[in-house]
């Protein structure tokens, strides 16, 4: 019997063009791949039932549909501003990405997703699996010019100018050409149970954001102004990839914790 699939309101499969927007294609795919390894069987089955694909397939959905009506309001919800003392700057109106994550989680948790129509749950899942890793990208934490004027500069690659945002978005794939998600997970994903508990902290999102802002300051020490990325020493390159891997693991475990909590 011909099973007729979904069309107008639910979205068909989405292509991931290798664009250096949030975290880049490789970053988002790696995070969601590691998340999928740590999902409970019920959570994994439910995610696949709603998304019709694995998590990495739709990891950069929000990047590709951000300009299409009726989703333009997602265009500005990929990053947030941080205050000097390391907290989210709510009144600047730029603290949206964290707000978006909190709202989608509140909509889905405590079995609320069961009463929602499938297409709404699918939409919220697509947003969640992109927005939560997005705020973990260190360069997605923007600091106001007044408090941190020294953070506004560009770096170089083989002499040519390169934006900080572009470089740090692709940092998980830095010095790792041709790696698949499986290889990346095998190399990087080796945390003990105790370390995971410290990262997740029982889903306390405010702790997460303060930790993210603390890490975000470190990138300005590693890649100083006008440093040529191609000619960095191996020790420096390792510093870049270590920071990137740390943030990727945090994003993956926290997303796994949230999804396991929703699909109990």
């Amino acid at each position: 019997m011909k099973k007729i699939s979904i069309l107008i309101f639910a979205l068909v499969a989405i292509l991931g063009v290798q664009s250096a927007k949030a975290w880049g294609g490789f970053g988002h795919g790696a995070i969601t791949y590691i998340t999928e390894q740590h999902l409970t069987p019920t959570a994994k089955a439910e995610c696949r039932r709603y998304l019709n694909h694995t998590l990495p397939w739709h990891a950069s959905w929000m990047d590709h549909w951000r300009a299409v009506p009726p989703y333009q309001k997602l265009d500005k919800l990929h990053s947030f501003t941080a205050t000097a003392d390391g907290d989210v700057n709510w009144d600047s109106g730029k603290g949206k990405a964290v707000n978006l994550v909190k709202k989608t989680i509140k909509k889905l948790e405590n079995d609320k997703y069961k009463s929602l129509p499938d297409s709404v749950v699918r939409y919220n899942l697509l947003v969640l699996i992109h927005a939560l890793p997005d705020i973990h990208c260190p360069v997605h934490v923007s600091f106001s010019k007044k408090e941190f004027p020294q953070y506004k500069y560009t770096i170089r690659k083989n002499g040519k100018k390169l934006k900080m945002h572009k470089f740090w978005d692709a940092s998980p794939g830095f010095t790792r050409e041709g790696w698949t998600y499986e290889k990346y997970a095998a190399e990087v994903d080796n945390l003990k149970r105790g370390a995971v508990k410290k990262i997740v902290k029982k889903g306390n999102i405010d702790y997460w954001t303060r930790d993210i802002v603390k890490q975000a300051h470190r990138i300005y020490d590693i890649t100083t102004p006008n440093i040529d990325v191609a000619k960095m020493s191996d020790k420096k390159k390792k510093e870049v990839t270590d920071l990137a891997d740390e943030q990727v693991l945090k994003a993956a475990y926290r997303l796994a914790y949230v999804l396991n909590g929703i699909f109990k």
């Binding site: 292509l15 991931g16 795919g29 790696a30 694995t54």
Partner: peptide
């Protein structure tokens, strides 16, 4: 765009639906 999948993982993904 799915180069970073392994062939087996890509096959598993296609076969979900």
């Amino acid at each position: 765009t799915h180069d970073v999948f392994t062939p087996q993982y890509y096959a598993e993904d296609l076969e979900i639906i």
